[in-house]
Computed example of a mutant assay.
Amino acid sequence: MRIELTGVSVEVAGRRLVHDVTLRAGSGRMVGVVGPNGSGKSTLLRCVYRALRPAAGTVRLDGADLHAMDAREGARLLAALPQEAGTEFDFTVAEVVAMGRLPHQRGAGRASAEDTARCARALARVGAGHLAGRGFLGLSGGEKQRVLIARALAQDPRVLVLDEPTNHLDIAQQLEVLALVRAGDSAPDGDGRAGEPGGRLTVLTALHDLNLAARYCDELYVLAHGRIAAAGPPHDVLTPELLAEVFGVRAHRVRHPETGAVQLLFDRLAAPAADS
């Protein structure tokens, strides 16, 4: 399932934070949104997963206006992991993941055997099956993040929106989670969907680490001051010139010895010489 943003602008408290953004993530593709702090990444994604409404423009899934959909219908198609996600109540991990099945349940929302099995498979996929009986509030930050990703996968979406999904994860976990999302099926048991090769999820994610973005994303959109500064494959987008202009750093590009993905080494930009 493809996701398309056309001319999207977002306002918060009367201030326009995102300006006329047009973005496309093709079916089964992983697309990253990168940019410095305050560039509008999270605000844009909040509009995509319907925490905010666009002041202008549209968000469409396979041509259908997402904001015009019934909430349950939208939740069957799109799952999200916000940057600050969680629960204030000490549910067990199994109960938190089971919340991902609510859009698929009718009436009183009683979980079926299939719901329970999908939740167990989602936990196993993120390496958190052993946490099922634990209280969510007692988990470490990294454990909580894995459980919330499992909840999103258990929702069985066609599109997954992730805002800084590697927060609180150590290096090995960051690589594992992004590899999982990158190769992920659109259903926890891997049953493909018609029209989507291998049933792969379409993923739209904001990432802070440019090297992770370059390694795992098919395309990148660079945001600066709420506007698109560049878009395209990571190798084409992450140029020293753009990184100096947008991020204020001097970048040295190298190739990953195994994947061939562009990787970056950073230095501070030289300070301008003082007038004599």
Results as ranks from 00 to 15, higher is better:
Thr6Gln: 14
Thr6Gly: 08
Val10Ser: 00
Glu11Thr: 15
Glu11Val: 14
Ala13Gly: 05
Gly26Gln: 09
Met30Gly: 00
Gly32Met: 01
Val33Lys: 02
Asn37Ser: 03
Ser39Ala: 15
Thr43His: 04
Arg46Asn: 11
Val48Ser: 02
Tyr49Ser: 05
Pro54His: 01
Ala56Ile: 00
Ala56Asn: 02
Asp62Lys: 04
Leu66Asp: 00
Met69Val: 08
Asp70Lys: 08
Gly74Phe: 08
Gly74Ser: 15
Ala79Ile: 06
Phe89Ala: 07
Glu95Ala: 14
Val96Met: 11
Ala98Pro: 06
Arg101Gly: 03
Ala108Asp: 09
Arg110Val: 15
Ala111Val: 03
Ala111Glu: 15
Ser112Ile: 08
Asp115Glu: 11
Ala117Pro: 08
Cys119His: 07
Cys119Glu: 14
Ala122Asn: 12
Ala124Gly: 15
Gly127Met: 10
Gly133Ala: 11
Leu139Glu: 06
Leu139Asp: 08
Ser140Leu: 09
Gly142His: 03
Gln145Lys: 10
Val147Trp: 03
Ile149Arg: 09
Leu153Ile: 06
Gln155Glu: 12
Gln155Lys: 12
Gln155Gly: 11
Val161Arg: 01
Gln173Gly: 13
Gly190Arg: 11
Gly190Phe: 09
Asp191Arg: 15
Gly195Ile: 02
Gly198Leu: 05
Glu219Asn: 09
Leu220Cys: 02
Tyr221Pro: 02
Tyr221Gly: 01
Leu223Ala: 00
His225Leu: 12
Val237Pro: 00
Thr239Phe: 03
Pro240Met: 06
Leu242Phe: 07
Glu245Phe: 07
Val254Gln: 10
Arg255Ser: 15
His256Ile: 08
Pro257Met: 10
Val262Glu: 05
Leu264Asn: 04
Asp267Lys: 07
Ala273Trp: 10
Ala274Leu: 14
